[in-house]
Design a protein around this nucleic acid. Sequence first.
DNA 1: ATCAATGCAAAGGTTTTGCAAAAAT
DNA 2: ATTTTTGCAAAACCTTTGCATTGAT
Lengths: 155, 155
Amino acid sequence: MEQERFKETLRRRGLKVTNQRLLVLETIADRPGQHLTAEEIYELTKEKYPEIGLATIYRTVQVLVELGVIDKVSFDDGFVRYELGDAGQDSRHHHHHAICQRCGSVISFEGDLLETLEEALYDTIGFVVTDHEVKLTGYCRECAKGKENNMEEIN
Amino acid sequence: MEQERFKETLRRRGLKVTNQRLLVLETIADRPGQHLTAEEIYELTKEKYPEIGLATIYRTVQVLVELGVIDKVSFDDGFVRYELGDAGQDSRHHHHHAICQRCGSVISFEGDLLETLEEALYDTIGFVVTDHEVKLTGYCRECAKGKENNMEEIN
DNA sequence: ATCAATGCAAAGGTTTTGCAAAAAT
DNA sequence: ATTTTTGCAAAACCTTTGCATTGAT
């Protein structure tokens, strides 16, 4: 199963397999498509392991990010958020976000149209891309509708 | 000159033209291509106006972002940064960043290959894109070189 | 004269750190 | 037995806010 691979990854790096690490990953893995803050991960993990501390959450997500198991994302709302990484798929990440600037909803979508850009970057300045993040801002369908009725607010 | 247009923008919004606002914008505008933190803007602006307070910097960059004069960017190093906006060019921003994960250097580049993606997003889910940000992570030429000689560190 | 903007200091919120105790190898 | 990890509380950090004063219109 998936968890065995994670334990193996920890051991390979000389890190210890702890209940806290397994549970934090489980919390995130059980909610694909969500983008959890440290505080949210803390509250959710406490349901299964009430004695866990917030500092452990911070230390654990740091480890998980370093291992490439989860990704760090930010939607500029003052919180750093974490989501399951799409590592292991085909070595590149193709997972992006569209953030509604009115209601704050986040839509995730796939797309691999950055490959030509990445090749060009390597050819011109020698930059080797290992990861990329595309963040689109705008208005989701609902809010785009509402916007038309509220032009005073916008301009 | 450029500054007149800024004063005009402030007035049009009912905001007052103050020395602090002019100087903060000048600090940023004088350093194209740099990505300054609030603290850096504070230190630099203090050279010209020693009595300015850090709170004013925070309040001013907030205004400048709202006016679209500067953009807020983050390279996940714990600082929010600001750079001159490329607004006014042709209504869309085409300015992106490649961040070296070893040395932290940031390379800015242009590119408008997101248009097809944005059209597709509108056609499929009705999302109206007003801005976009592309963040590439990887290794700059120098660090990519160094990496080959230091595989222990990486794996 | 009016109302917005500033500076300072204090408060706010998230994230990190020191350290002794507990757990994993 | 050794070394890492944890939990707690305190500290650090960036950012925001309250308020009296100053400054712009």
